[in-house]
Design a protein around this nucleic acid. Structure first.
Lengths: 233, 233
DNA sequence: CCAAAAGTGTTCTTTATACACCCATGT
DNA sequence: ACATGGGTGTATAAAGAACACTTTTGG
């Protein structure tokens, strides 16, 4: 205890961290989960959840551990994004960050006040504050990746609840891709993939015609994607 | 001199390296450049060029420096691929590797005997030997990425000489994608992009009709890709 | 009865695919 | 003259884009 600098190497080494860009979708727009930093550097600034990699875990494990510790989120869709290694990206010392991005169902995740996650907050993409470190750059890349990927891989479902309507899905696509899509053509394309299962349920308590709820057919998608399934919105 | 373990930290840190998968195209097939390891671990095995990151360089710089030192190659098309961080990927100690892939014009690069590059050799994708570390896994991902990327981004040109014919380009695509393409349709699609410039030169000394040489219009591609140019073979 | 969003088909245009013959050259 | 690979056009099929009205529901 109190023993410092116990780990010595022949050559200098950078510290290795992970940072995760967590996307959610709610109120018709894409959001990102940020944590307010409680310590220097960048104390008080917002940043992505993340932290130092332990020696007995790989980067994926680290990213999931940090995510759980800082936000309570578990078992989310997560993918490696890019590794950021600019020499001066951390003012303290040399730090290499392996960045991830994750897609979560906002409905599964209610921010609890008072616990470790109390400093976590969802920000719409249009209202991102100034971020710590090079996190602005990380965010840019994550958004670009999401936009690129959502067009030809059905990852949109990861952002919606288990049951969702076709108009819900369309709003997500319109928001993510920043375009307007034709209702009839969108429905045709999505149904033609055969990846939606009709749940037989309908939206309730709306002052207009009720939309049907669908589920995403994960098993069928796995089979199709192994066969080289190609899809595009 | 002789002073060891001078760099001490409060927490243990992994070493950080880069490894680069170098693709070339010749004799009608895709090839990869490998280096024979002269030291343990995996002495005598083939591996990708790469090495430890210095504290005053970022990963891109490191990958290019190592590539130059080990093979003499400079100014190649290079992109970050993925970061490999499995706990046991290096038998000596914890090493995180930021992998890159590069595309080079084989014509620009003649292996010189006797210098530092003397242990470098091109291997066709179909004849890859057993590799060191987790390089087999890295190669798999690099090939997957190349196949995916070549379909919708004109990176194929990076693998061909400055001047190339349309049949050359077609052979590259057929080899990379492992398919057979229709000559007439391929030509139409490629020319329709407007990215080929007719050089006015023809192949010489062939016992059949001469093919025209084209150049890739990099400037035009930059303009188009900023405008959201989308292309697919 | 009104406002609001969901559901539904058809036409037209664009793009992709399939396919066969002639041409130029070196040996 | 022959073997080799390069160049070219057209017809058909498939996919994408454009577009308007009716239905259901709560207030």
């Amino acid at each position: 205890m109190g023993q410092e600098n116990r780990y010595c190497y022949k050559y200098p080494r950078p510290a290795v961290t992970t940072d995760s860009v967590i996307f959610g979708f709610g109120e018709g727009e894409l959001k990102v989960l940020l944590i307010e930093r409680g310590i220097e550097p960048f104390k008080g600034r917002w940043a992505f959840p993340g932290g130092f990699m332990e020696m007995d875990e790989d980067a994926d494990t680290c990213a999931r551990r940090e995510l759980k510790e800082e936000t309570g989120l578990e078992e989310v869709y997560m993918e490696q994004l890019y590794t950021f290694s600019a020499v001066d990206r951390d003012p303290r010392s040399r730090v290499v960050s392996i960045a991830y991005y994750a897609l979560v169902k906002l409905s599964d995740y209610v921010l609890k006040a008072g616990d470790d996650a109390s400093k976590a907050k969802w920000f719409p993409l249009s209202e991102i504050p100034i971020l710590a470190f090079d996190h602005q750059k990380i965010l840019q890349m994550a958004v670009k990746r999401l936009k690129g990927k959502i067009r030809y891989q059905p990852i949109g479902f990861e952002l919606l609840p288990e049951k969702f309507t076709i108009p819900d899905l369309q709003r997500l696509y319109e928001s993510a891709l920043q375009t307007v899509l034709d209702r009839r053509n969108f429905r045709k394309k999505i149904l033609k993939t055969g990846l939606l299962i009709d749940t037989g349920e309908w939206v309730a308590d709306v002052p207009h015609k009720r939309a049907k709820y669908y589920r995403f057919d994960k098993a069928k998608y796995r089979v199709l994607s192994e066969k080289g399934f190609y899809f595009e919105i």
